[in-house]
Design a binder for these strands. Structure first.
Lengths: 221, 221
DNA sequence: CCGGGTACCGAACGTCCATACGGTACTGCG
DNA sequence: CGCAGTACCGTATGGACGTTCGGTACCCGG
């Protein structure tokens, strides 16, 4: 065991994050922006599906070691997000366009731009905007090209409009549908009679909820 | 499904803070900006010279009661700094609610609040947001309660969605309809078969165009 | 003079939270 | 093959933190 270090120092050179670490960092960023404070270990675990806070602690240590965040020992919510290459301007929402298979929705490659829109316009607060493709939700007043304001969360109640990824980590593009729970199965229902509901048994086909829709912005009439 | 919240945009009532309370709010603001997270009661006490956290608690309760902050019960550092009331923040759009007869649409009495929304999201740029009442434009994807982004202008082309005041200066409330020109007459067409078009001969009945719709914001789903 | 609001103090309680320890499984590397 | 790193799990502990209760003192309008 090396001698005990008095402080947890960021390494001199930035170290590349893994995909998972980037994903977790993005989640923390979204949480901090929406909640106005950094998350606790337990909240990270809950938000990302861990069953114990220590998994969150592990990731935080990795992120701190790689210089992505700072940890203030002994302090509740004692996280500080350090400067990232894509400077997230205060009070702006990232606009997410097409999302490639298997990559986190808030990866910098998907961010088409940023718009100055108050996240608190919506409730719960919006974490990002997602450009909606297709007309599968027209009857819910969501049209092709609309921007869906999304609150990043992995939990959704039946009846909510969700941003979901079907097929798991290696899945296809994300989809916007209304979530319905039927027993232990899950239905993704389009708000357009031309589209049939998608039924999913979580035991056989993974379903990842990326967030819930909290509003719509249409930038042209 | 949770009950649909009533619209609540502006803080209920701007209550004046005492000098001491403003001082403490400023301190909290400075702390949050510098630390990246809101302070604890103990930190507030330490920073302001109190000898006990309960003094900080007292002040937080007062600030919350007056609408300056929000407190999340049981949550460490669970403070949220709310918008300073009455301050026309740069880069915000005024939200216009009900418009009384005969008064200008942007009169302060009609402004329910201001939202930080980039006017350049829309083109031409939005000048204000108008709360839409009724379902006369549902087929255009504009629903009851939506915020219509409006570009203030008195000129509109046929086919555009306009904010119009019928009956002239002393007219009734403003209305949102699609404008159609037919010869020298003007039609205001609802996008809902349940509503008949309104035909107006400008020679006999005055028609004032207040602006054209350039976008929609729906703050709840 | 009494009630209510402001501005503090001090003690105490319970739970939220950071953190340590130890374990499993998988991957890539030399 | 062993070794290191990643990505999780479960349990446990002590201190950090929110919150309550009760008290003192001052000011103000009725």
């Amino acid at each position: 065991m090396p001698p005990r270090r008095p402080f947890r120092l960021a390494p001199p050179e930035p170290v590349a994050l893994t995909a998972r670490q980037r994903q977790i960092l993005d989640w923390i960023r979204a949480y901090a922006a929406s909640a106005g404070m950094p998350p606790t270990r337990a909240e990270i675990a809950r938000g990302l599906g861990f069953s114990t806070p220590s998994s969150a602690e592990d990731h935080l240590r990795s992120l701190a070691r790689k210089g992505a965040i700072e940890i203030r020992p002994g302090t509740s919510r004692g996280l500080r997000l350090l400067e990232a290459p894509g400077v997230p301007v205060q009070g702006t929402l990232p606009l997410v366009g097409r999302v490639a298979a298997g990559s986190p929705i808030l990866a910098t490659g998907h961010i088409e731009g940023r718009w100055r829109v108050d996240p608190a316009l919506f409730s719960p607060a919006a974490d990002y905007l997602l450009r909606v493709r297709g007309d599968s939700m027209v009857d819910a007043g969501i049209r092709d090209g609309d921007l869906l304001a999304v609150h990043a969360t992995t939990e959704a109640r039946s009846g909510q409009i969700v941003v979901a990824r079907v097929g798991g980590a290696g899945g296809d593009e994300v989809t916007v549908k209304r979530l319905k729970r039927r027993g232990r199965a899950v239905l993704l229902v389009a708000e357009n009679p031309a589209y049939a509901p998608i039924e999913i048994d979580p035991a056989t086909r993974p379903l990842a909820i990326e967030g819930v829709g909290v509003g719509v912005i249409r930038t042209g009439l």
